[in-house]
């Protein structure tokens, strides 16, 4: 008789089915309802303001779309074909490539170097102050500090030329020069973003067990050998993350280019389109010339480029990065 209750479940399922089989399902439904309920508000915001426009953008890229009449005509790939025939589109792509190829490695290298310098001071109070100073630019508003850098880059009385003068280097025209305008933006962006990547690298360094570094030290490693054989491989995952993040961020750079090269007074992207990057061109095409369909097509191209670059980086990382 002692086994009766457990046996009855198996032998007479009909009478128990409502409670025994459905109960766990109901409990699961209850918890999942709660879960979906909790994410619903942010999901709604996300759908409305992120995926909604993104899907709409993908839609109008294949139409002639007029913002005033809201009339749309399907044109297939015509917008893309139009883009490929515009020299300024290629110029913008080239500018973006130049900007990303120089800035991403430069930022990552500088951040890594700073992180290695600051590593010793990880536990020091003064180390904390240095870290704060390096991170500080990143928390300032881009538009505000860009305006300060417009003064710094002023060819007549700016700080940049004063520094060059101090080292007996001929003065530059910075933002007013076709050759130096984009590098000037790079310098600003480097200053503004290196703190973030330094902190990321510091976190990566902190995750390397101290005893592993000490073991390498007693094994006779130091300097370059220590970096190459211990720090660099163990920093692989964080380096990959920094490169992906920096690539995406630099490919989307807008505010500082807009502000540094002319901003609200017009002429952003100059001189002579030398600082017109993809995102700036998208903005101008859409909101200055009101060619929303063209801008959408451009956005899709930019999206595909970023996606491709990230996939390539992931492919490389999967082969060469060591994950613990």
């Amino acid at each position: 008789m002692a086994q009766a209750p457990s046996r009855s479940l198996v032998q007479n399922p009909a009478q128990d089915i409502s409670s025994s089989r459905l109960a766990p399902w109901r409990a699961r439904l209850k918890t999942s309802m709660l879960g979906y309920g909790l994410i619903l508000p942010s999901l709604l915001v996300f759908l409305t303001f992120f995926y909604g426009p993104a899907i709409f953008l993908a839609y109008i890229a294949f139409f002639h779309w007029n913002i005033f009449t809201q009339a749309s005509t399907f044109v297939g790939f015509e917008n893309f074909v139009t883009l490929f025939h515009q020299p300024v589109f290629w110029q913008a792509l080239l500018n973006t490539a130049y900007y990303v190829i120089v800035l991403v490695p430069a930022t990552a290298l500088l951040a890594l170097g700073l992180a290695l310098l600051l590593r010793e001071g990880l536990s020091h109070r003064r180390g904390g102050i240095s870290r704060a100073f390096i991170f500080l630019p990143h928390v300032t508003p881009v538009v505000a500090t860009s305006i300060i850098w417009v003064w710094i880059f002023n060819p007549q009385f700016g700080l940049a030329n004063t520094v060059l003068h101090f080292f007996h280097i001929p003065a530059l025209n910075w933002l007013e020069s076709v050759h130096w305008a984009l590098p000037s933006v790079m310098i600003y962006t480097l200053w503004h973003s290196v703190g973030l990547y330094t902190v990321l690298f510091l976190a990566g360094l902190a995750s390397i067990p101290r005893s592993v570094i000490e073991a390498a030290t007693t094994d006779g490693a130091r300097g370059w050998r220590m970096f190459k054989r211990v720090f660099w491989p163990l920093l692989g995952p964080i380096t990959f993350f920094v490169l992906v993040l920096a690539s995406i961020n630099t490919m989307q750079t807008f505010s500082q280019i807009y502000t540094l090269t002319g901003g609200p007074h017009g002429g952003a992207g100059g001189p002579a389109f030398s600082t017109t990057t993809d995102s700036l061109l998208i903005y101008q095409t859409a909101f200055l010339y009101l060619h929303f369909s063209l801008a959408s097509a451009m956005s899709i191209i930019l999206f595909i480029l970023i996606m491709t670059l990230t996939l390539i980086q992931k492919w490389v990382a999967d082969r060469f990065v060591f994950y613990r």
Binding site: P209, V212, E214, T218, D219
Partner: peptide, 19 residues
């Protein structure tokens, strides 16, 4: 410095180079 003393050290958590 430690790297020139030629001591062999064994740590509690082994501290093997994981990579």
């Amino acid at each position: 410095p430690a790297y020139s003393r030629n001591v062999g050290m064994v740590f509690q958590n082994y501290a093997i180079y994981p990579h």
